[in-house]
Design a protein around this nucleic acid. Structure first.
Lengths: 115, 115
DNA sequence: AAAATTAATAACCAAAAGGTTATATATTTA
DNA sequence: TAAATATATAACCTTTTGGTTATTAATTTT
C-alpha cells in the first residue's frame, strides 16, 4: 500500500492542529492517558471556551476522541493521524537530508582547491 | 542530550508552515534538489507574490534556504527543522499508540464477558 | 539601449484563528 | 430542590493568513 501524500487535506488539519503550543501541550499531557477536560485545561491561563475551541481543533484533525461519562468529557489521543503526519515528514526528510549531506561531502572533498 | 519539546516556538513555525498544501508541495518538489523560484512556482495557479509569501513562511520556519545567482533565487530544503518536528510526533505517538493498543487488547481479552 | 525576465514589496481584502464575556445545558452534590 | 460543577455555544474583537493587483528593482537577453 502506497501512501498518497499529495493533496491530503487531513495533513492541513493535522499540521495545523500541531502548530499551537497549547494543543501540543494537551497532546503531551494525553501521553499519560485519558483525562477529563478540566484536568487537561488546568495548566493553561485561558478561559474555558478557549480550551473548548482548542479541543475542537484537535478533534477535527482526528487527533483526539471524546467520550462522556456524566457531565465529564474524557479525552484520549488517537495515534493514527499524527503517525500519518510523521510519515510525511520522515518520507521527505530522507531526501532533503541526503542532498544536504551530499553537498557537505562535496564541499569537504573540494576544501583545498584553488580557484 | 535531551530534547526540550516544551514551549518550543520553532515547532509553531514549522508545523504552521507544513499545514498548507502549497508549501508541502514545494517541499516535496525540493526533494529532487535545489530549484529556482520560477520552477518551484510552476505547478501552482496563483500569483507570483503569493508564491513569494509562501517561501517566506518556509524560510521563517527554517525549512528552506535561499541563494542568489544573478536574477534567479535558488531554493533548497534544510532537513533539520522538519526532523525536529518529526521527532516531536515520533516521541509522543509512541505513548498514544501504546495506550491505544492496550485498550484494544483489553477489549479483546474481555470480549465474551457477561455484565 | 530597449525589452524581457525574475523576484520583492506595498497596499489592500476576505476569511480564519485565537482569544474574550455572557449565557445555556446537563449532571452531580449538598 | 437548590447550588455547584463541567462543558458547549453565541456573539464579539483583534491579529494572522492567504490571496489579489500594482509597482519597483535587478539582471539578462535581444
Amino acid at each position: 500500500m502506497v501512501i498518497n501524500f499529495e493533496n491530503n487535506e487531513n495533513l492541513d488539519l493535522i499540521f495545523g492542529a500541531l502548530s499551537d503550543a497549547t494543543r501540543r501541550g494537551m497532546l503531551a499531557q494525553l501521553s499519560d492517558g485519558e483525562t477529563n477536560i478540566t484536568a487537561l485545561a488546568a495548566p493553561y491561563a485561558m478561559s474555558q471556551p478557549a480550551i473548548s475551541k482548542h479541543l475542537r481543533v484537535l478533534e477535527r484533525a482526528g487527533l483526539i476522541a471524546r467520550s462522556r461519562r456524566g457531565r465529564d468529557h474524557y479525552i484520549k489521543a488517537i495515534p493514527g493521524p499524527a503517525e500519518e503526519a510523521g510519515g510525511w515528514i520522515a518520507y521527505y526528510a530522507k531526501f532533503w537530508r541526503q542532498q544536504f549531506d551530499d553537498v557537505e561531502a562535496y564541499l569537504q572533498a573540494n576544501k583545498g582547491d584553488t580557484k
